[in-house]
């Protein structure tokens, strides 16, 4: 195998040597069109890079709900603190700007490019081109940028105009000019000293003998700081089955994004009360929901957590790990 590969590389190099002259240093090998085609995934605003294929808003809706809504919300409103995709029009010059695809993004091509290269978050580059056309169309529809009957393809997608496109301008810094003054440069009687909000800074690292009065920094923990600090689960103390031990690695890669934070109603790892009713349904039901997806009153479980590259066994093992760590 190795030898034949070597031979074919030499043949390709020789075949191309008549057409392409070597660079000044003659280092490296020719990148073949096949190699480039596999990696060249980028899309530009003028439509360059958009592949053949198509997808509609109607086809996008179920795909979006299965693969995107667990983080971005059913209407693009964003679950928890995951990115909001829709809304926010007219807010950019207010005190609470909301930057979404519709209110902020200057080009629709960026949406296609990013969904294809990086989404779903836990399973990048797992979507087909048709699925990306469909989901991108649906996100544009959620933003009232295309109509319900929109079908996106190489031609129509490149023609989509985004409402905020004209509001971007090229960097014009330096935009402020300070002077290098040395004496009486400011009027201290006008000074207003603004201090920090107590409690938002993690201060665990302050030196033990620094002499800083620690209570100064911990006076009034805000909701933001205290609620977001992740409480470690002592899962290692639980005796895990062989399946669960195998599932632990799967969990870290594919499941923890939602099941550590509880996003989209996901029961958190180690949250006994959150798991008890689910465990009561039996492992078969849990495995079925995890493998094939589930949508209930409490939340959304995308099939295999959105990562279709996982085998059914991987998912079953991960479920075992979560269950054994949460009872």
């Amino acid at each position: 195998m190795f030898k034949s590969l070597r031979v074919s590389v030499v043949v390709v190099t020789l075949a191309l040597s008549g057409i392409v002259s070597a660079g000044p240093l003659g280092i490296g090998s020719t990148a073949t069109p096949e190699m480039i085609a596999g990696w060249d995934i980028d899309i530009r605003p003028d439509g360059v890079g958009l592949p053949p294929g198509q997808g509609s808003v109607a086809e996008g809706e179920p795909l979006y709900e299965a693969k995107c809504a667990s983080c971005h919300g059913l209407f693009g409103e964003g679950e928890g603190r995951w990115p909001v995709l829709a809304g926010g029009e007219g807010t950019l010059d207010t005190l609470h700007p909301e930057k979404t695809v519709g209110s902020y993004w200057p080009f629709a091509s960026t949406l296609w490019d990013y969904i294809y290269r990086a989404m779903p978050y836990t399973a990048p580059q797992s979507l087909s081109k048709e699925e990306v056309y469909s989901i991108a169309a649906y996100v544009l529809y959620l933003n009232d940028i295309v109509e319900e009957d929109f079908v996106s393809n190489q031609e129509t997608f490149a023609q989509v105009k985004m409402p905020n496109e004209a509001n971007f301008f090229i960097d014009n810094r330096p935009d402020v000019q300070n002077e290098r003054c040395f004496q009486s440069c400011a009027d201290p009687s006008t000074f207003e000293i603004v201090t920090t909000i107590n409690g938002v800074t993690p201060t665990g690292h302050f030196k033990e003998d620094s002499g800083v009065a620690a209570n100064h920094y911990e006076g009034n923990p805000s909701a933001a700081s205290s609620s977001e600090i992740r409480v470690e689960k002592s899962v290692t103390k639980v005796a895990l089955s062989k399946e669960a031990l195998l599932g632990r690695g799967v969990y870290d890669k594919a499941c923890q994004t939602c099941h550590n934070s509880g996003i989209a109603g996901a029961p958190k790892l180690g949250d006994v009360s959150g798991w008890v009713d689910r465990i009561g349904q039996g492992m078969d039901t849990l495995n079925d929901h995890a493998i094939n997806g589930y949508q209930g009153a409490d939340g959304v479980m995308p099939a295999k957590g959105g990562n279709m590259a996982l085998s059914d066994d991987d998912v079953v093992n991960a479920v075992a790990y979560m269950v054994e760590s949460s009872r």
């Binding site: 980028d42 530009r44 605003p45 950019l92 010059d93 700007p97 930057k99 695809v101 902020y104 993004w105 200057p106 080009f107 091509s109 960026t110 490019d113 990013y114 990086a118 509001n167 971007f168 301008f169 090229i170 960097d171 014009n172 810094r173």
Partner: peptide, 19 residues
């Protein structure tokens, strides 16, 4: 004009326009 040079890493000004 990819995500990290449009949606992110652009600078919103008070008038609603962005660098």
């Amino acid at each position: 004009h990819h995500r990290e040079e449009t949606s992110k890493y652009t600078d919103l000004m008070p008038d609603g326009r962005s660098r």
